[in-house]
Design a protein around this nucleic acid. Structure first.
Lengths: 205, 205
DNA sequence: TCCAAACCGCACTGCTGGTACGGAAACCAG
DNA sequence: CTGGTTTCCGTACCAGCAGTGCGGTTTGGA
């Protein structure tokens, strides 16, 4: 990893922590460069503006998030062959992971960016779109596997439902902020899990 | 309604439209006063700072939202006595209302405020908390009515689930912004409705 | 050793939220 | 109609912000 790449990563590290805690606009470039141990000139050498930083942060955040969920799916597949239980276990692992975090779920760069439209040009919007589509695709695959062996107890569009599962997390983040209760997001994941269970589980009650 | 109250309302009207479209920080006071037909001095006469405006906007937004939902609940009660169907019809009315809006759901001041922590002092946070608790209470009452006549197909905490229903809207707003598709929020409400149906409906399949 | 990438220092612009204060117009009670 | 209060304007000012420009310096690698 080159020196430049390391600096870029350090910038994004400190920026992400601040952005998740305070939002994009509330995080000043002066603050970022101070924490990253560089100067404003150094910052603008790597990112042409704050928007470019946001765009790269979104992509990087999506990368790590997708990888983490993939790891949980893999772990779930080790525990069962039943596709329904793969998803149920995955959702439980996600919830546990959120609950085990020191201060609950730290927030989501994508969700945060969605509400800061000043710095959101078409590029940021596109980066956000890419991210949510990747999450949707991830859950969509699991739902398709389930559909091969189970029938649903209600008619739902699978693309929408896959999207809805990540949307539950997004909603949980908003509500956890509104409530001032960091455990909310994990509970939302478990409620979404309940939805999955009710949707596919045969012979209810 | 006094002259001052009318001016305050006009300020909040134009501010809300801009905030829902662009976020709090992206909406400048200069822009608000221009659209409201007053001066900066006039603005600061009514609101001591931008944060005070946000706080009053949140309360006002919650008031109208609660009233709208109450009206839909009342309409649903006219159509059926069954408490489960009261909620199901209410959710359908909410979804239809969102879909009928010219540009989909315009967004939520509470959700927007949750992601703009610069101007969020304890007062804003408290206003946001009040709002989500009011929504939660609204759905909680309907769920309690259902519980008197139905048993659930899965164990869920009713307070959480009531909160989850409004959270679905919040998540839908985020995802609609991320997708760039304004119909998403209404679809989320319908998926939440499906969850309710699956949770209470006896003798599935 | 040499060159390019990486980074610094500094000066500048334009916009923002916010303060301060004197004054003017609108409104309302007596 | 009068006097006082509410409401609003005009202007000048401050600090913090994102972003630009550019010359200079350090660093790492071929």
């Amino acid at each position: 990893m080159s020196r430049g790449a390391r600096t870029r990563d350090r910038i994004m590290d400190v920026a992400q922590e601040a952005v998740l805690a305070k939002g994009f606009e509330a995080t000043s470039i002066d603050e970022i460069v101070a924490d990253a141990g560089i100067t404003r000139s150094g910052f603008f050498y790597h990112f042409k503006d704050k928007s470019a930083l946001a765009r790269e942060m979104i992509d990087r955040y999506a990368d790590t998030s997708i990888a983490e969920i993939d790891a949980m799916v893999a772990r779930a597949r080790e525990l069962t062959e039943d596709p329904l239980h793969v998803l149920l276990i995955t959702l439980k692992l996600i919830a546990e992971d959120m609950r085990s975090a020191p201060n609950g779920h730290p927030g989501c760069v994508v969700a945060t960016a969605a509400f800061h439209d000043r710095l959101i040009g078409p590029e940021i919007r596109e980066a956000n779109r890419r991210a949510v589509l990747r999450w949707q695709e991830q859950f969509r695959v699991l739902l398709d596997d389930i559909a091969k062996q189970y029938r649903t107890n209600d008619e739902v569009d699978f693309d929408r439902f896959a999207d809805f599962l990540s949307g539950a997390v997004a909603g949980g983040i908003i509500m956890s902020r509104a409530h001032g209760d960091t455990t909310v997001t994990a509970e939302y994941v478990l409620l979404a899990r309940s939805h999955v269970k009710l949707l596919f589980q045969p012979k209810l009650q």
